[in-house]
Protein backbone atom coordinates (compact mmCIF):
# COMPACT_ATOMS: atom_id res chain seq x y z
CA UNK A 1 0.00 0.00 0.00
CA UNK A 2 1.25 3.43 -0.82
CA UNK A 3 1.53 4.91 2.65
CA UNK A 4 3.33 7.97 1.37
CA UNK A 5 0.32 9.18 -0.60
CA UNK A 6 -0.97 12.43 0.84
CA UNK A 7 -4.42 12.16 2.24
CA UNK A 8 -6.40 14.73 0.38
CA UNK A 9 -9.52 14.37 -1.72
CA UNK A 10 -9.23 15.44 -5.34
CA UNK A 11 -10.98 18.70 -6.19
CA UNK A 12 -13.74 16.83 -7.95
CA UNK A 13 -14.33 14.50 -4.99
CA UNK A 14 -14.24 17.42 -2.60
CA UNK A 15 -17.04 19.07 -4.55
CA UNK A 16 -19.15 15.91 -4.13
CA UNK A 17 -18.27 15.81 -0.44
CA UNK A 18 -19.35 19.42 0.06
CA UNK A 19 -22.58 18.74 -1.82
CA UNK A 20 -23.32 15.81 0.51
CA UNK A 21 -22.57 17.83 3.63
CA UNK A 22 -24.90 20.60 2.46
CA UNK A 23 -27.79 18.15 2.53
CA UNK A 24 -27.88 18.46 6.31
CA UNK A 25 -28.61 21.44 8.56
CA UNK A 26 -25.85 23.56 10.09
CA UNK A 27 -24.12 21.76 12.95
CA UNK A 28 -25.31 18.33 11.77
CA UNK A 29 -22.51 17.62 9.28
CA UNK A 30 -21.91 14.30 11.01
CA UNK A 31 -24.98 12.98 9.18
CA UNK A 32 -22.86 12.81 6.03
CA UNK A 33 -20.41 10.42 7.64
CA UNK A 34 -21.47 7.15 5.95
CA UNK A 35 -21.24 8.33 2.32
CA UNK A 36 -18.03 10.21 3.11
CA UNK A 37 -16.44 7.04 4.42
CA UNK A 38 -17.42 5.21 1.23
CA UNK A 39 -15.93 7.98 -0.86
CA UNK A 40 -12.77 7.97 1.25
CA UNK A 41 -12.49 4.19 1.00
CA UNK A 42 -12.84 4.33 -2.78
CA UNK A 43 -10.33 7.14 -3.05
CA UNK A 44 -7.68 5.75 -0.71
CA UNK A 45 -6.85 2.17 -1.74
CA UNK A 46 -10.09 0.50 -0.72
CA UNK A 47 -9.62 0.74 3.03
CA UNK A 48 -9.87 3.25 5.86
CA UNK A 49 -6.58 3.81 7.61
CA UNK A 50 -6.64 5.77 10.89
CA UNK A 51 -5.12 8.67 8.97
CA UNK A 52 -7.96 8.57 6.42
CA UNK A 53 -10.57 8.44 9.19
CA UNK A 54 -8.90 11.38 10.94
CA UNK A 55 -9.04 13.28 7.64
CA UNK A 56 -12.78 12.62 7.38
CA UNK A 57 -13.18 13.78 10.99
CA UNK A 58 -11.47 17.06 10.15
CA UNK A 59 -13.75 17.61 7.15
CA UNK A 60 -16.85 17.05 9.30
CA UNK A 61 -15.48 18.94 12.35
CA UNK A 62 -16.04 15.95 14.60
CA UNK A 63 -13.71 14.00 16.86
CA UNK A 64 -11.78 11.11 15.27
CA UNK A 65 -13.27 8.72 17.84
CA UNK A 66 -16.74 9.43 16.39
CA UNK A 67 -15.51 8.23 13.00
CA UNK A 68 -13.83 5.11 14.42
CA UNK A 69 -17.02 4.18 16.23
CA UNK A 70 -19.08 4.25 13.04
CA UNK A 71 -16.44 2.84 10.69
CA UNK A 72 -15.78 -0.15 12.94
CA UNK A 73 -19.48 -1.00 13.15
CA UNK A 74 -20.13 -1.65 9.47
CA UNK A 75 -18.64 -4.60 7.63
CA UNK A 76 -18.44 -2.73 4.32
CA UNK A 77 -15.73 -0.44 5.67
CA UNK A 78 -12.35 -2.14 5.61
CA UNK A 79 -10.13 -1.20 8.49
CA UNK A 80 -7.20 -3.18 7.12
CA UNK A 81 -5.62 -3.07 3.66
CA UNK A 82 -7.37 -5.21 1.02
CA UNK A 83 -6.45 -6.46 -2.43
CA UNK A 84 -7.56 -4.67 -5.55
CA UNK A 85 -10.54 -7.01 -5.86
CA UNK A 86 -12.43 -7.76 -2.70
CA UNK A 87 -14.30 -11.02 -3.27
CA UNK A 88 -17.23 -11.33 -0.86
CA UNK A 89 -18.86 -14.74 -1.03
CA UNK A 90 -22.28 -15.06 0.54
CA UNK A 91 -22.44 -17.89 3.06
CA UNK A 92 -25.93 -17.46 4.47
CA UNK A 93 -28.45 -20.37 4.39
CA UNK A 94 -29.69 -20.33 0.78
CA UNK A 95 -26.23 -19.86 -0.73
CA UNK A 96 -24.78 -22.41 1.65
CA UNK A 97 -27.39 -25.02 0.68
CA UNK A 98 -26.51 -24.34 -2.95
CA UNK A 99 -22.82 -25.00 -2.33
CA UNK A 100 -21.21 -21.74 -1.23
CA UNK A 101 -18.72 -23.76 0.85
CA UNK A 102 -17.43 -25.40 -2.30
CA UNK A 103 -17.15 -22.04 -4.01
CA UNK A 104 -15.12 -20.66 -1.13
CA UNK A 105 -12.90 -23.76 -1.13
CA UNK A 106 -12.35 -23.39 -4.85
CA UNK A 107 -11.34 -19.77 -4.41
CA UNK A 108 -8.95 -20.73 -1.66
CA UNK A 109 -7.32 -23.38 -3.83
CA UNK A 110 -7.19 -21.22 -6.89
CA UNK A 111 -5.81 -18.11 -5.16
CA UNK A 112 -3.67 -19.96 -2.62
CA UNK A 113 -5.12 -18.00 0.29
CA UNK A 114 -7.56 -18.60 3.12
CA UNK A 115 -10.69 -16.60 3.85
CA UNK A 116 -9.66 -13.20 5.23
CA UNK A 117 -6.31 -13.21 3.44
CA UNK A 118 -4.91 -11.25 0.51
CA UNK A 119 -2.87 -12.71 -2.36
CA UNK A 120 0.80 -11.82 -2.28
CA UNK A 121 0.46 -9.75 -5.47
CA UNK A 122 -2.15 -7.63 -3.75
CA UNK A 123 -4.74 -8.54 -6.35
CA UNK A 124 -7.40 -10.44 -4.40
CA UNK A 125 -8.82 -10.51 -0.91
CA UNK A 126 -11.27 -13.28 -0.05
CA UNK A 127 -14.03 -12.68 2.46
CA UNK A 128 -17.27 -14.39 3.43
CA UNK A 129 -20.33 -12.30 4.14
CA UNK A 130 -23.91 -12.68 5.25
CA UNK A 131 -26.96 -12.47 2.97
CA UNK A 132 -26.66 -10.02 0.09
CA UNK A 133 -30.30 -10.39 -0.89
CA UNK A 134 -29.88 -12.41 -4.02
CA UNK A 135 -30.99 -15.81 -2.75
CA UNK A 136 -32.79 -16.60 -6.05
CA UNK A 137 -29.45 -16.76 -7.81
CA UNK A 138 -27.50 -18.64 -5.13
CA UNK A 139 -24.65 -19.24 -4.75
CA UNK A 140 -23.42 -15.75 -5.40
CA UNK A 141 -20.69 -13.27 -4.55
CA UNK A 142 -20.12 -9.57 -4.63
CA UNK A 143 -17.07 -7.77 -5.90
CA UNK A 144 -17.33 -4.05 -5.42
CA UNK A 145 -20.68 -2.93 -6.84
CA UNK A 146 -21.15 -6.06 -8.96
CA UNK A 147 -22.97 -9.32 -8.22
CA UNK A 148 -21.77 -12.61 -9.76
CA UNK A 149 -24.54 -15.16 -9.54
CA UNK A 150 -25.37 -18.88 -9.97
CA UNK A 151 -21.71 -19.59 -9.36
CA UNK A 152 -19.91 -22.76 -10.40
CA UNK A 153 -16.22 -23.59 -10.22
CA UNK A 154 -15.87 -22.82 -13.93
CA UNK A 155 -17.52 -19.47 -13.53
CA UNK A 156 -15.16 -18.71 -10.66
CA UNK A 157 -12.15 -19.51 -12.87
CA UNK A 158 -13.44 -17.21 -15.61
CA UNK A 159 -14.18 -14.49 -13.08
CA UNK A 160 -10.69 -14.61 -11.62
CA UNK A 161 -9.20 -14.32 -15.11
CA UNK A 162 -11.50 -11.45 -15.97
CA UNK A 163 -10.80 -9.50 -12.80
CA UNK A 164 -7.08 -10.03 -13.09
CA UNK A 165 -7.08 -8.83 -16.70
CA UNK A 166 -9.25 -5.84 -15.82
CA UNK A 167 -6.77 -4.66 -13.16
CA UNK A 168 -9.31 -2.14 -11.79
CA UNK A 169 -9.85 -1.70 -8.07
CA UNK A 170 -13.29 -2.90 -6.96
CA UNK A 171 -15.47 -0.29 -5.36
CA UNK A 172 -18.94 -0.02 -3.90
CA UNK A 173 -19.08 3.44 -5.45
CA UNK A 174 -20.10 2.13 -8.85
CA UNK A 175 -22.76 4.46 -10.30
CA UNK A 176 -22.57 6.38 -7.03
CA UNK A 177 -25.00 3.87 -5.60
CA UNK A 178 -23.94 4.35 -1.97
CA UNK A 179 -24.88 8.01 -2.08
Amino acid sequence: MSETKTIQFSEETMATVQRLIKRYPEGRQKSALLPLLHIAQAEFDGWLSPAVMDYVAVILSIKPIEVYEVASFYTMYNLNPVGKCLIEVCQTGPCWSRGSDDIVEHFEKKLGIKVGETTSDGQFTLKTVECLGSCGTAPMLQCGGDFYENLTNDKVDTLIEKLRANGQRSTYMKDNRVM
Binding site: I65, Y68, E69, S72
Partner: peptide, 18 residues
Protein backbone atom coordinates in the same frame (compact mmCIF):
# COMPACT_ATOMS: atom_id res chain seq x y z
CA UNK B 1 -17.53 12.45 28.03
CA UNK B 2 -16.01 12.47 24.55
CA UNK B 3 -13.29 9.84 24.66
CA UNK B 4 -15.03 6.53 25.32
CA UNK B 5 -16.97 4.79 22.62
CA UNK B 6 -18.34 1.50 21.34
CA UNK B 7 -16.62 -0.03 18.33
CA UNK B 8 -17.45 -2.83 15.92
CA UNK B 9 -20.52 -5.03 16.10
CA UNK B 10 -21.88 -8.47 16.92
CA UNK B 11 -19.45 -10.60 18.88
CA UNK B 12 -16.65 -8.08 18.53
CA UNK B 13 -18.12 -5.06 20.29
CA UNK B 14 -15.40 -3.17 22.09
CA UNK B 15 -15.78 -0.39 24.64
CA UNK B 16 -12.75 1.81 25.07
CA UNK B 17 -10.83 4.84 23.99
CA UNK B 18 -9.51 5.40 20.48
Amino acid sequence: GKDLDAYASKNNVYFGRA
